[in-house]
C-alpha cells in the first residue's frame, strides 16, 4: 500500500479531465492505497455546497479524504459553513506534510 496525495488545481466546469482525476483517486483507493485528494485554486469550486460535480460526489462516497486549501476557499468566498459534507478546509501545510512524509504527490 502506498500513500498518495493527489492535488487537483482545476475545476470540472472548465476541464473535463478533472473527472478522470477523481476516477484515478477512486481507483487507487479501491486498490488499497491511502489516498488524500487536496483541492486548490479553482479546484475548490466544486467544494461549495450545492455545486454540481458527479466526480467529487463519487470520491466522497468512496470515503476518500478530501481537503480544500483554506486560502483558495477564502479567496472565492467559500466559508466553512458553505462546504459540502465530506470536504474539510485545510492549510496548504498538508501538502508539504505529504511531501515530507514521502507520499506520492501528484499535481493536476
Amino acid at each position: 500500500m502506498s500513500k498518495y496525495l493527489l492535488i487537483e488545481s482545476r475545476d470540472p466546469y472548465e476541464s473535463g479531465d478533472v473527472g478522470h482525476y477523481f476516477d484515478l483517486a477512486e481507483g487507487l483507493a479501491r486498490g488499497g492505497d491511502d489516498v488524500t485528494l487536496f483541492l486548490v485554486q479553482n479546484g475548490v469550486l466544486p467544494a461549495r455546497r450545492g455545486a454540481r460535480s458527479d466526480g467529487l460526489d463519487a470520491a466522497i462516497k468512496a470515503g476518500i479524504e478530501i481537503l480544500a486549501d483554506d486560502f483558495s476557499l477564502r479567496e472565492r468566498a467559500i466559508g466553512a459553513s458553505d462546504l459540502r459534507a465530506g470536504v474539510k478546509s485545510s492549510p496548504l501545510d498538508a501538502v508539504v506534510d505529504g511531501l515530507a512524509d514521502g507520499a506520492k504527490t501528484i499535481w493536476h
Binding site: V95, L99, A100, G102, A103, T105, W107
Partner: peptide, 8 residues
C-alpha cells in the same frame, strides 16, 4: 531529495 513535486 526526500520528495519532488512537478508543477507543469
Amino acid at each position: 531529495s526526500d520528495n519532488t513535486l512537478i508543477m507543469g
